[in-house]
Amino acid sequence: PDEFRDPLMDTLMTDPVRLPSGTIMDRSIILRHLLNSPTDPFNRQTLTESMLEPVPELKEQIQAWMREKQN
């Protein structure tokens, strides 16, 4: 489902985090971005790792969907 895909890389998220802007991304992708630029890739506001907020409900939904697909 589209809501499980990272908006920057269009890959399935495994550890979704919410940026201060409200955008949800995969943690590994935003951390890689932050190594090059300490900004939100969508609005260029300053962004640090400590500002990332886990989204455990979405992570659980993704994991359940993945388990379902394996069966």
Rank of each mutant, 00 (worst) to 15 (best):
P1Y: 09
D2G: 13
D2V: 14
D2E: 15
D2A: 14
E3K: 13
E3W: 05
F4P: 07
F4R: 09
F4L: 02
F4V: 01
F4M: 10
R5I: 14
R5W: 07
R5V: 12
P7Y: 02
L8V: 12
L8K: 05
M9R: 11
M9C: 13
M9K: 15
M9P: 05
D10C: 08
D10G: 14
T11D: 05
T11P: 05
L12Q: 07
L12T: 00
M13W: 01
T14M: 12
T14N: 11
D15H: 02
D15V: 00
D15E: 08
P16V: 02
P16T: 06
V17A: 01
V17K: 00
R18P: 00
R18C: 06
L19Q: 07
L19K: 03
L19C: 05
L19P: 01
P20V: 00
S21E: 02
S21M: 02
S21A: 09
G22H: 04
G22A: 01
G22D: 03
G22F: 00
G22P: 01
T23I: 09
T23Y: 11
I24T: 05
I24K: 02
I24W: 00
I24L: 02
I24H: 05
M25S: 05
M25N: 11
M25T: 02
M25I: 01
R27K: 14
R27W: 00
S28C: 14
I29H: 08
I29A: 09
I29Q: 11
I29E: 03
I30S: 03
I30R: 01
I30M: 02
L31P: 01
R32L: 09
H33M: 12
H33V: 03
H33R: 08
H33A: 06
H33I: 05
H33K: 03
H33T: 06
L34N: 05
L34G: 03
L34M: 11
N36W: 12
N36C: 11
S37T: 07
P38M: 04
T39Q: 11
T39R: 10
T39F: 14
D40K: 01
D40C: 03
D40W: 00
P41G: 04
P41S: 03
F42Y: 10
F42G: 06
F42N: 00
F42E: 08
N43W: 00
N43G: 08
R44L: 13
R44M: 15
R44D: 10
R44S: 15
R44W: 06
Q45P: 07
Q45N: 08
Q45V: 12
Q45H: 11
Q45D: 11
Q45M: 13
L47W: 02
L47E: 04
T48W: 05
T48K: 10
T48Q: 15
T48L: 09
E49Y: 08
M51K: 02
M51H: 09
L52G: 00
L52Y: 03
L52Q: 11
L52P: 01
L52H: 04
E53W: 02
V55P: 03
P56L: 04
L58A: 07
L58Q: 10
L58F: 04
L58V: 07
K59S: 07
E60I: 06
Q61G: 09
Q61S: 11
Q61C: 08
I62S: 04
I62F: 04
I62V: 09
Q63G: 11
A64Q: 13
A64C: 12
A64K: 11
W65Y: 05
W65K: 08
W65F: 10
W65S: 05
M66Q: 13
M66R: 10
M66E: 15
M66L: 15
M66Y: 05
R67M: 08
R67T: 13
E68Q: 14
E68K: 11
E68T: 10
E68W: 08
E68I: 02
K69N: 15
K69D: 10
Q70S: 11
Q70A: 14
Q70C: 13
Q70T: 14
N71P: 15
N71H: 13
